[in-house]
Nucleic acid binder design. Structure first.
Lengths: 233, 233
DNA sequence: GTCCGAACTTCATCAGATGAAAGTCTATGA
DNA sequence: TCATAGACTTTCATCTGATGAAGTTCGGAC
């Protein structure tokens, strides 16, 4: 437990990452107590304050629970803040499980068509322009795998942004944290990229025309293709 | 800044709530520095450790940012963990803004139909049974405003649960935190409740028959009616 | 075998000291 | 006048020690 993946960051942040990553990847099992403060001080090479601050941060994310005299234990998974940026990056960061890929793909299928629909209802001129710009970037980078990933994420973010809903946008930002890690593994081919362009175009056009049903349908096509790809590879 | 809404809880939790609530409700403006540690110690009546632990928890939720010698300041809203349980309850807890009601209603419209669709794809027998039980509870409590709210939340949760997707279920749990606070204000009439029963029934039937399109359509009807109600009142 | 209490464990909290980094002020020189 | 280097100040970062509180464990009395 003495690995040190975050050398120069703040001491308490080191504690957060060291314990958080182990909890999320399953090395520390829910219900079991983690080592006592003194032991963590030794294993992590930091002082008691740093350990306590780190543990409190993880408790704030629902991963840990401290009880006086009864030790600190890992909370059940249902209590975790699954859409916390740190928790997500620990979960999808290293090497995502197959089940997690499915969860992510299903989430997009569940969410993005509806988001596109609301975007079509709420988009103002500026939002529509941002979508159009993102679409142009998508076309411009279709031959370049890496920039295309960024452009794709930016396009979807522009759509969510058009819905004028900070909660929705937050959810997308968290999805994109996971997507970005996963995509680096499942980099799709240039041919694939070009196939998705017309569907993205349809999304943009439908939103521009405030046609919610079409926006939703087009986005569903996009994310269902993405899901099929993700589950095949 | 010396209010004490959490008398018997842990000292550091008191700090978290005192500062967190003020940040989310806008009393502490993003970009501005909060009082220095020593002052917080005096104002909140706790020791430095408690202040530091509380501040670290809020930093973990993206609300604060500490910089050595430069003080601790409120981070911009875009950095906040908007789907954190605490942040949500501070936002929707006291008296929700009209804009927040709209955001919540739109989020449901964007999300729930898609979730019902995925539920229809993924539901197993046990999940379907839970939905049916929740539906029965909904019918049974239609005349009782308060229990009906619980039954309604339980029904929607059962649908999300059927999608077999922990991220989706987490999002719903966070929505329900907000919904529960808001509904206590906008308690709907018994007549209203009875009107929504057939739509809920259609959702359950469609999922049972694994008819995703119908499940989605029926759920859209439910949440669009709810949105119209919320925005009128 | 059950119940009570003492000893022990472990987190909770406060307080003090030291350090590091960033900002502020001042004096100097051009 | 203005720029700049260096000293000073502020404020968070971290470690350590001491005390307290609340469970847990274990032994003894019955």
């Amino acid at each position: 437990m003495a690995t040190d993946p975050y050398p120069d960051t703040a001491r308490h942040a080191h504690v957060v990452h060291a314990l958080g990553a182990r909890i999320v990847d399953g090395s520390l099992v829910p219900g079991t107590p983690i080592p006592i403060e003194e032991q963590l001080v030794n294993e992590l090479g930091v002082g008691r304050s740093a350990v306590r601050e780190g543990v409190k941060v993880l408790a704030g994310k629902g991963l840990l629970e401290t009880r006086r005299s009864a030790g600190t234990r890992v909370r059940p998974r249902e209590s975790w803040s699954l859409l916390d940026a740190d928790v997500l990056s620990w979960r999808f960061g290293a090497d995502a499980q197959a089940g997690d890929i499915r969860v992510l793909a299903d989430l997009r299928v569940a969410l993005e068509p509806g988001a596109a629909r609301v975007a079509a209802e709420r988009a103002d001129a500026a939002a529509i322009q941002r979508i159009d710009e993102a679409l142009a970037a998508l076309h411009a980078t279709a031959d370049d795998p890496d920039p295309f990933i960024d452009a794709d994420l930016a396009f979807h973010r522009a759509v969510f942004g058009a819905a004028d809903n900070d909660l929705l946008l937050y959810i997308y930002d968290m999805i994109s944290i996971a997507l970005r890690s996963v995509r680096q593994v499942h980099t799709r081919s240039v041919a694939h990229n070009k196939e998705t362009l017309p569907n993205h175009e349809r999304v943009a056009v439908a939103i521009r025309r405030r046609h919610h049903r079409k926006a939703e349908e087009a986005m569903r096509e996009v994310v269902e293709v993405a899901r099929a790809d993700a589950l095949h590879c």
